[in-house]
Design a protein around this nucleic acid. Structure first.
Lengths: 245, 245
DNA sequence: CGCAGCCTTGACCATTATCAACGCTGGTGG
DNA sequence: CCACCAGCGTTGATAATGGTCAAGGCTGCG
């Protein structure tokens, strides 16, 4: 299931170029406010992974043995109902953390949606590290707190926003969450399929497609390809996202 | 806005009867795994609050000056859209923590839905306490992680479950989250109105009411009063909650 | 006793899901 | 080099779930 990458340093975000770029780009990344000695210890314990699209980092109900730090690519985190309905609870990008959940099995699944590099730590190592590295714990608490705020926003979206508002919000938040998704002039790269966007926004692929068309017709966005679009009118998009359109 | 309670001890959950009961009932309560000396310091810094139904603990966009620990009663946490649509992101009960969010303004509002007692700490004190009390930080990280898992479940509910599944899930999780809501023989006390249940589940009051009626007709629940009901068939309710009914 | 607030029920409506057909695109193999 | 195919995306027609609007009932309190 896992392919271990030969490159063996920089997992904590200090040496490896990818990871470090991610760190600098993200105010709350794991390596922020952790000193050199601690980073060295982290690096020593890290296992390096390289995954193809579709490969899993975690599976719901499997033993929760590891925690992960994404260093490049994108990951979908989701939960399923018994009949197969899927809710994607978040997308993860370079710098994001995965697997903090307490309990001894994962309660969600996580899979690469494009080639991903990540590093992972055994949960036992991770717990020891946390005990010995207060700065790490502070950083993780900060991150968890941020994720909680993001989760509240997503609940507002799923519970109370219309399809048009959901898609508009998504198009604004994707580049805000991951600078690597953001090109110049409001250009946005979408690594995920319509099905994944739909399962993230609590809609169907048809509805997502229709809303894209509506936004295009209104001149708010321009579709450059299936995986790239340009925001032509950010103000209008923001107004739509908050229900003022 | 705040009425300070005269009772001046036990806010950290050690002395005051209410709070301590709550602590013992909840494996992850704030006082768990914190030693006596630390608890004493916590108590020394706590301000004690007593709120009537409808009074606010926090308001979205106000300066985030305090963190709170609920010691009795119930609280609604919610976000609003500009046009007034409301999403309740969670209900808090005795033992729950509030206000961990980073940033210098609150991003949610929190109000008592029945008489509430709580204690609060200045954010500056709280930050210092965290630095000086690793056990507190560990506990808070655990709690945040649990809340994150709960938030993912709620996203699954809001994004993919039907009205019947949502209400069934709610009736099962309310007593699971707060033992004080659970009477004997599957009896459940609902401190919140239909409007609050609706805004928590992403539905309207009419739909919530109709689902209650359907569950009643099917013999799954029995309504004892507006604020109390009895689960007659927990297995059926569980099946409905997961979409197998 | 009467009123206010909340809840329930009913009729109708709208948004979004479902079902179906078609189109585009990229990869593969003749 | 082109044709075909598979997978994904778009568009259209229809259906259903839940929302909206409206009326009436219950309950607790003054």
């Amino acid at each position: 299931m896992f392919e271990t990458n030969a490159v063996s340093s920089g997992c904590a975000g200090r040496v490896d170029r990818n990871a470090c770029d991610a760190c600098r780009a993200r105010p709350l990344s794991v390596c922020a406010s952790i000193d050199e000695a601690d980073l060295d210890r982290l690096d020593g314990l890290a296992q390096h992974l390289s995954l193809q699209a579709g490969e899993a980092l975690t599976r719901a109900d499997d033993p929760a043995d590891h925690v992960f730090n994404i260093t490049s690519g994108s990951v979908r985190v989701y939960k399923l109902l018994p009949d197969g309905r899927r809710q994607i609870t978040g997308f993860l990008f370079a710098g994001d953390f995965l697997g903090l959940a307490t309990g001894d099995t994962y309660v969600f699944s996580a899979e690469a949606i494009e080639p991903v590099t990540a590093c992972r730590f055994r949960k036992s190592d991770y717990r020891r590290l946390i005990r010995e590295t207060p700065a790490l714990e502070t950083t993780l608490l900060d991150r968890a707190t941020h994720e909680l705020a993001a989760a509240q926003n997503q609940m507002l979206l799923l519970g109370r926003k219309t399809a048009l508002e959901r898609v508009s919000t998504f198009l604004l938040e994707l580049p805000a969450h991951d600078p690597a998704r953001r090109g110049p002039d409001g250009r946005v790269h979408l690594p995920m399929t319509r099905a994944e966007i739909a399962d993230y926004l609590g809609l169907t692929i048809e509805t997502v497609s229709r809303v894209f068309t509506r936004l295009k017709t209104r001149g708010v966005i321009r579709l450059l390809s299936l995986t790239a679009l340009q925001i032509e009118n950010p103000e209008a998009l923001l107004a739509l996202a908050e229900g003022e359109g």
